[in-house]
Nucleic acid binder design. Structure first.
Length: 426
RNA sequence: GGAGAGAUGACCGAGUGGUUGAAGGUGCACGCCUGGAAAGCGUGUGUAGGGGUAACUCUACCGAGGGUUCGAAUCCCUCUCUCUCCGCCA
């Protein structure tokens, strides 16, 4: 959520932001109006409360001295009633104000290209060269079924569409990738490993911005108010919800493996085959809590950490900077890393690295106390996939496939596969 | 699932209706003392919101939400979490 004071003092900036992000500017006008209304009511009721406090104190003294205070008591009874009514009125105003501010997206950083959709995303760099195939390259689902390491049909029977059984070397490959990435980020990039709960409560979903706006994309558990996490970002960012960290704790780097659960409402008919779009997929996620002055440098480093995985696996990729219209709700700046998928003949997203600046921190109330005394300030939060495991598996199967249907295992991954060099049909 | 106990500031811990935003202690910050340090002494030390150029001032907050009352950290109700014992269980 944005700083209310910022909207109040710079409504024009807030409006331009809404327009750049394909939203309506009327929300801002409504917000300003309701906010004024709130302050006006607030000052009235606070005067009443102040009055009640002094008179109540006086009543106490009078009673102690044995005087009759019945008149004052009667008077205050009326005042209290009035306060109660006004408090209720203000509560309703607050509710509307909160609802309004929750629908306003973050302000993009000045380096973010302005544009309506992915056409305006800016290509930052490319790494590696897509391989030339001397035979017809197959999509990963065909490779996986051919090797009997992926089973989509039975998963559809057992659960439903967009689920998969991994088998044999496929299951091991998925597990190897998880361990490979966790080891890389903890040992070489300085992250602390976390294994979080895979369900969270409503407050956590609100804290990172999945709710209230995107509830239809989430799996909600019946008879509870728990949600299956759509990414480890949710439990990990919420670790420090409502806390004040000390400045020397910053920056905090966390890395977490988790399965991710997404309803994919509104994605009907898209990526229906293969591992690209599943209701449940594995992901290694990096989360950072940093000092506000350093968050943009940290974003570059975070992105580099994710890129490193692809470099070690020798998978060609490119990095794009999302434009204002394509940017997620809470992000101020996002780099998408896209891996080359031969079957698509295109680069597909495999990681998304974002700087949320103080947007999530304000919402989740995560602060730090500056050493030079001073008031607590909001930290800046960042996160990025490091990487999406299912999509990495797809990329390996497709990029490393051989004409005979087998798949060569990237060299750096072999220690995690018991030294195996190649996946073949057994 | 059954029975019981509890939740107060960065931390420990008082406090059962009336200057309690909250005693006392620890920690922390600053100052004095010291050759330097420890000890000692002194001062200060929450968050959020409203008003004011400012000094400042008002309001709210003692797990969360309701209620009783002129007045609630203190009384009542609901919920959440923690702990102990029993049952069950990976």
């Amino acid at each position: 959520m944005l700083d209310i004071k910022l909207i109040r003092s710079n409504p024009e900036i807030a409006k331009k932001n809404m327009v750049d992000r394909n939203g309506g500017a009327e929300v801002i006008d409504r917000f300003i109006k309701v906010d004024e209304q709130r302050r006006e009511r607030l000052s009235v009721v606070e005067k009443l409360k102040s009055n009640r406090n002094t008179v109540s104190e006086q009543i106490g003294i009078m009673k102690k001295e044995g005087q009759d205070a019945e008149n004052l008591v009667k008077e205050m009874r009326a005042v209290s009633q009035q306060i109660k009514e006004m408090d209720e009125e203000i509560r309703q105003i607050d509710e509307e104000l909160t609802a309004l501010v929750m629908t306003i997206p973050n302000v993009p950083h000045s380096t973010v290209p302005v544009g309506a959709d992915e056409e305006s995303n800016r290509l930052e760099r490319q790494w590696g060269t897509p391989r030339d195939f001397s035979f017809a390259a197959k999509p990963h689902w065909e490779i996986g079924e051919g090797l009997d390491i992926l089973d989509f049909e039975r998963a559809a029977k057992v659960t439903g569409a967009r689920f998969t059984f991994y088998k044999k070397a496929g299951a091991r490959l998925e597990r190897a990738l998880i361990n490979f990435m966790l080891d890389l980020h903890t040992v070489e990039h300085g992250y602390t490993e976390i294994l979080p709960p895979f369900m969270v409560n409503r407050d956590s979903m609100v804290g990172t911005g999945q709710l209230p706006k995107f509830e239809e994309d989430m799996f909600h558990l019946e008879n509870t108010d728990y949600f299956l996490i759509p990414t480890a970002e949710v439990p990990v960012t919420n670790i420090y919800r409502g806390e004040i960290l000390s400045e020397q704790d910053l920056p905090l780097y966390h890395v977490a493996y988790s399965p991710c659960f997404r309803a994919e409402a509104g994605a009907h008919g898209r990526d229906t085959r293969g591992l690209i779009r599943q209701h449940q997929f594995n992901k290694v996620e990096m989360v950072k809590f940093v000092h506000p002055t350093e968050s943009y440098e940290e974003l570059e480093r975070l992105t580099a950490n994710a890129e490193r995985v692809l470099q070690l696996l020798e998978l060609p990729y490119q990095v794009v900077c999302l434009c204002t219209g394509d940017l997620g709700f809470s992000a101020a700046k996002t780099y998408d890393i896209e891996v080359w998928l031969p079957s698509f003949g295109a680069y597909r997203e495999i990681s998304s690295c974002s700087n949320f600046v103080d947007f999530q921190a304000r919402r989740a109330n995560i602060r730090f106390r500056p050493q030079e005394k001073g008031k607590p300030e909001f930290v800046h939060t960042l996160n990025g996939s490091g990487l999406a495991i299912g999509r990495t598996t797809s990329a390996i199967l497709e990029n490393y496939q051989q004409e005979d249907g087998s798949v060569v295992i990237p060299e750096k991954l072999r220690p995690y596969m018991g030294g195996k060099e190649r996946i073949t049909a057994e």
